[in-house]
Design a protein around this nucleic acid. Structure first.
Length: 306
DNA sequence: TCGTGTCAAGATCTT
DNA sequence: AAGATCTTGACACGA
């Protein structure tokens, strides 16, 4: 069984669950008006989330990434007096129940400013706070540990090996509810598939293989040789991959608007023995997913789930 | 209504 | 040491 998903927003909808406000805007308001504004944004995001879930189910899409901004400025000081978890208990329950009923897998990708292997204590603190926020949202929705938080290793700081080990050390400082959800993805400039696989095996957490990043950064390793080891890191959980297509030869690292169906079908057919989820990362979001499906169908390619 | 500056945040490269 | 870049969409404001 192979399931496809997309990240955060529907291409043609203005009603995505990523509405936000700014600190500057909130600072102009009285404490009461500030709370009102924050509540209004989160309520809108919940409404839009339920809407996008319904759209996804209609289109048999059961993997979806929650925008990090879902709770506006959740980790910023300006919202520290706002008990959003308590105020929105009903909405969290409702979203969780809907996902359980329809078997939707929700995941998240904390922003690139959250870096667990940082050597700066303040950055470490804000990173732990950010990861904790993401985990808390999933906890409040009652989601199981297939709802993972995907992060990268982080910076190199002129010493790759030491930076990998600092990730492992800092991982031990995380609260339990973050540890049970955190997974690491290989990136396209610093930490390769081998680096991340070794790290994940050492810590005992799952690895997300990003196929495009591997194409950007590798030492000639054959991806398919490592698939069994990567899948093993997931234990009883459902493995998850990231897939995207290069924009062009001259700008290879950038994501194309769509997924190249030939490359995708070739990759999937090499993994036909396995069950897993694939997050498609490209500008055209849900449209790219539905287009890819049509192209595969046209080519007579239809593994279970797709 | 439309165009534009700004946004919570870090690492790394450039000057 | 300071500034630009990465990447990137959407908010908020002023024309």
């Amino acid at each position: 069984m192979i399931r496809l998903g997309y990240a955060c927003i529907r291409l043609d909808s203005p009603n995505n669950p990523n509405k936000k406000t700014t600190v500057a805007q909130l600072q102009k308001l009285s404490p009461e008006a500030r709370l009102k504004k924050l509540r209004q944004v989160l309520q809108t995001n919940f409404f839009n989330l339920m809407d996008i879930f319904a759209y996804n189910v209609e289109n048999r899409i059961f993997l979806y990434r929650l925008p990090s901004e879902f709770v506006p400025l959740a980790t910023h000081r300006i919202t520290e007096d706002w008990d959003w978890a308590k105020e929105f208990t009903w909405d969290f329950d409702k979203a969780g129940a809907y996902m359980k009923k329809h078997r939707i897998r929700l995941t998240s990708h904390p922003g690139h400013y959250s870096i667990l292997n940082t050597d700066n204590p303040n950055v470490l603190k804000s990173t732990i706070a950010d990861f904790s926020y993401h985990a808390r949202v999933f906890d409040l929705m009652g989601l199981d540990d297939n709802s993972v938080l995907v992060t990268h290793v982080g910076g190199v700081y002129n010493d790759k090996e030491a930076s990998l080990q600092r990730f492992a050390e800092h991982f031990e400082l995380l609260p339990e509810n973050v540890k049970r959800r955190l997974v690491v993805e290989n990136d396209d400039t610093s930490f390769s598939m081998i680096d991340v696989l070794t790290l994940c095996e050492q810590i005992g957490i799952p690895m997300v293989l990003d196929v495009h990043h591997h194409d950007c950064l590798n030492n000639g390793e054959d991806l398919y040789e490592y698939i069994p080891r990567i899948l093993d890191t997931w234990g009883t959980r459902t493995p998850k991959f990231h897939f995207s297509s290069p924009k062009c030869e001259s700008d290879f690292r950038s994501h194309a608007d769509h997924i190249d169906p030939e490359r995708f079908m070739e990759w999937v057919s090499r993994l036909s023995d396995y069950s897993f989820d694939v997050m498609l990362e490209c500008k055209n979001k849900d449209d790219a997913l539905l287009t890819l499906r049509r192209e595969m169908k046209k080519a007579g390619f239809s593994p279970e789930g797709l």
